[in-house]
Simulated scan of single mutants.
Amino acid sequence: MADENSQEVAGQGQPWAKRQAEIQVGDRVCYSQRFLQSTGQYTGDVPFARGIVTALVPLGSIMLAEIDWQNDELPARVNVANLSRVTQKGILDR
């Protein structure tokens, strides 16, 4: 059985993993479902927070995103592994 991440999507000519782009400057983001569940944050402001990535900052092997959140009480830098992109079609969780 083939790995579904390596299969080509009909009509696209690219593997699915490559179509799901990494977080970049200018992307609208939110905290990922995996991160929220691992920290037990089901209610409050954090699960509904949305922001725009203004810069990417390498920190050793970790990439941090500087985010302009709608809520100023949230941290300005977040590990990109804890984020999901928000598009017109919805949240793109990895």
Rank of each mutant, 00 (worst) to 15 (best):
M1Y: 13
D3T: 01
N5G: 09
S6F: 07
S6V: 14
Q7N: 05
Q7C: 10
E8V: 07
V9A: 08
V9H: 10
V9K: 02
A10G: 11
G11L: 06
G11T: 14
Q12D: 07
Q12H: 01
G13Y: 09
G13F: 10
G13W: 05
P15S: 15
P15F: 01
P15L: 05
W16E: 03
W16P: 02
A17C: 06
A17N: 15
A17R: 07
A17P: 02
R19H: 13
R19L: 15
R19C: 04
E22F: 01
I23D: 09
I23Q: 15
I23P: 09
Q24H: 14
Q24R: 08
V25I: 15
V25L: 06
G26I: 06
G26D: 05
D27Y: 03
D27Q: 04
V29P: 07
V29M: 06
V29Y: 03
C30T: 13
Y31A: 10
Y31R: 14
S32K: 01
S32G: 02
Q33A: 04
Q33M: 12
Q33I: 06
R34C: 09
R34T: 14
F35A: 12
L36G: 15
L36Y: 10
Q37S: 07
Q37P: 01
S38V: 08
T39P: 01
T39Q: 14
G40Q: 06
Q41Y: 11
Y42N: 08
Y42M: 10
Y42I: 06
Y42K: 10
Y42A: 05
G44E: 02
G44C: 12
G44Y: 00
D45S: 11
V46R: 15
P47T: 02
F48N: 09
F48R: 14
A49W: 07
A49E: 03
R50C: 10
R50W: 01
G51P: 10
G51H: 05
G51L: 01
G51A: 02
I52N: 09
I52M: 04
T54D: 12
A55F: 00
A55M: 01
L56E: 07
L56W: 00
V57L: 11
P58E: 07
L59Y: 09
L59T: 13
S61K: 15
S61A: 14
I62G: 00
I62D: 00
M63L: 13
M63T: 11
L64Q: 04
L64K: 04
I67S: 15
I67T: 00
I67M: 00
D68A: 13
D68Q: 13
W69P: 10
W69T: 08
Q70H: 15
N71T: 07
N71E: 09
N71Q: 09
D72L: 04
E73K: 06
E73D: 11
L74Q: 05
L74P: 08
P75R: 12
P75L: 06
A76D: 11
A76P: 03
A76S: 04
R77Q: 07
R77V: 01
N79S: 09
V80M: 12
N82H: 06
N82D: 10
L83W: 00
L83K: 07
S84Q: 05
S84A: 05
S84T: 14
S84E: 09
R85F: 00
R85P: 02
V86D: 09
V86F: 00
V86G: 10
T87R: 07
T87E: 01
Q88T: 13
Q88H: 13
Q88E: 13
K89T: 13
K89A: 15
G90S: 03
D93P: 03
R94L: 11
R94K: 14
